[in-house]
């Protein structure tokens, strides 16, 4: 395992489509639930414990068993009731594969797998292990939305990165829990849901004017 390889994969500047997604933040900003740093922190904490855990678990499982991508892909489908979120996840999975194909030799992974599945398969191809895949997924869950918070709310970027630093131990914990289930049957993988993310994503998809794809 190469730590530098993990940094390359988890780098926010990796051209894998993430910049156009707010991780569900834009609809909650519009609903008035997220206005300042504290509510961003609560948003990130809840997202990490729910969809972040699911993403980390599926990234870890797909990294451990990259040949079972289709099964994991279906596992995320049944955990993602919002069609808008399924679409956003698949778009980001496709974009990640596009970037990763230029970086490592990838096995066939389908055209548009869910992002965590793509991440696990890419991590495996990069020689990383399930825990590293899970860390990258957990970190990506919060860092993308945090970056969107800076852009949408004009927050102090230092303060937002302070938040991310304080969430890092939580990301590690989530990733460790996720890595433990890497060998479990798909139905037994975590399925923690976040109802407001689902509802917000559906509403967001109907807006005529929006800044982020999701």
């Amino acid at each position: 395992m190469s730590l530098a390889t993990l940094l390359v994969l988890a780098d926010g500047r990796l051209p894998s489509g993430g910049h156009a997604h707010s991780g569900g933040l834009e609809p909650q900003v519009s609903a008035g639930r997220v206005r300042e740093l504290d509510s961003v922190a609560e948003f990130l904490r809840g997202k990490l414990a729910t969809t972040g855990l699911v993403a980390a678990a599926f990234a870890a499982a797909a990294c451990a068993r990259p040949g079972n991508g289709a099964e994991f892909d279906q596992g995320i489908d049944v955990r993602t009731p919002s069609p808008a979120l399924r679409k956003a996840s698949r778009a980001q999975g496709r974009a990640l594969l596009r970037a990763a194909r230029a970086m490592w030799t990838l096995p066939s992974a389908g055209r548009e797998p869910h992002q965590p599945v793509a991440l696990g398969i890419v991590a495996s191809a990069a020689g990383l292990g399930a825990l590293e895949a899970a860390v990258a997924a957990a970190h990506g869950t919060v860092s993308g939305a945090a970056s969107a918070a800076v852009r949408l709310l004009g927050l102090d970027p230092y303060a937002v990165h302070g938040l991310l630093a304080r969430l890092a131990p939580d990301c590690d914990r989530i990733a460790a829990a996720a890595a433990k289930t890497a060998g479990a049957p798909v139905d037994d993988l975590p399925a923690a849901g976040a109802p407001l993310l689902d509802i917000g994503a559906e509403l967001h998809a109907t807006w005529e004017v929006r800044l982020f794809a999701s």
């Binding site: 569900g24 609903a31 639930r33 609560e42 948003f43 997202k47 414990a49």
Partner: peptide, 11 residues
């Protein structure tokens, strides 16, 4: 449940 009453889960 961390963040359950935050704006991602139930607000």
């Amino acid at each position: 449940a961390p963040g359950w009453s935050g704006p991602a889960v139930l607000g």
